[in-house]
């Protein structure tokens, strides 16, 4: 009896989580515009999507911002993690609090405060400011995935490299970074996914002329949403699902 209940409970959870997405995906293949009526299977909305210049442009903004932000954040975050790792206890605790704070802060706070900063510094908001904002919120996630890898490392590994004749730079690139490679890749994937689906912070740090997918969809909803966005959302879901599976697979590996 208990087993049956457990299974029903789990099934309900999964249904509530995934049925809406399933509906979305099904609707994206609906030939007609109506949400109430199935008018046959078609790739119509996907074709529409590809030929929609503003969506394609937003897609380009989203992906390019995510890639640039991920690369910069991964480099900065990894170096920061190594720096924090080699600090003494007290300053380390302070740095970790500073690193964790943005993660716990609501996006709206980060978004609005960045917007105020840009206005204050008289930086015109657009593509560049959005990239900066994404780097800002990505860095802590990279730090948090690299740092545990460093802490797992034998404390004398760096010294062992120096002892065998490696300069500090060689030891960093040939020992320390390979040692925490898994953490770095996980951090980068995490940064990339977060960057891809960020709305709030992007909304406050860009101009209406430079839109990424989430801000574009947000403005589109005001006019009543076209099934083109179902197609777009379905594609995004699949891409993020794949990335997530890779991340999970990697973290699973780390335990083994």
């Amino acid at each position: 009896m208990k087993r049956v209940f457990k299974r029903i409970y789990l099934a309900l959870i999964l249904i509530f989580l995934y049925v809406p997405i399933l509906v979305l995906i099904v609707q994206s293949f609906n030939a007609g515009k109506s949400r109430a009526k199935w008018e046959g299977f078609s790739f119509h909305w996907y074709q529409e999507l590809v030929s929609n210049a503003s969506i394609m442009n937003a897609l380009w903004v989203t992906v390019s911002v995510a890639i640039i932000a991920t690369i910069v954040a991964t480099i900065l975050g990894t170096l920061a993690a190594i720096g924090i790792y080699s600090m003494k206890k007290r300053p380390q605790a302070v740095m970790m609090t500073i690193t964790n704070l943005p993660n716990t802060m609501p996006d709206i706070v980060t978004g609005v405060s960045l917007m105020l900063l840009y206005i204050f510094a008289k930086v015109e908001r657009g593509y560049f400011t959005m990239v900066l904002a994404h780097i800002t919120f990505d860095v802590p996630y990279v730090v948090l995935s690299v740092l545990p890898k460093l802490k797992q490392m034998n404390t004398h590994i760096y010294e062992a490299a120096l002892d065998l004749g490696a300069t500090p730079a060689y030891a960093l690139t040939h020992v320390i970074i390979p040692e925490c490679k898994q953490g770095i890749v996980t951090g980068a994937l995490l940064a990339f996914t977060l960057s891809l689906d960020d709305f709030t912070i992007s909304y406050f740090t860009t101009s209406p002329l430079v839109q990424n997918l989430s801000t574009l969809i947000y403005s589109a909803t005001k006019l009543g949403i076209s099934p083109v966005y179902y197609a777009l959302s379905s594609l995004m879901f699949v891409v993020l699902l794949v990335l997530l599976l890779i991340v999970n697979h990697r973290t699973g590996d780390n335990k083994g």
Partner: peptide, 20 residues
């Protein structure tokens, strides 16, 4: 003189081998 210029080598406690 930094460690990498010294003509001594160390066997560390718990070995400190490079796992990768």
């Amino acid at each position: 003189l930094p460690p990498y210029k010294r003509r001594v080598n160390t066997v560390f406690q718990k070995y400190a081998l490079f796992p990768h």
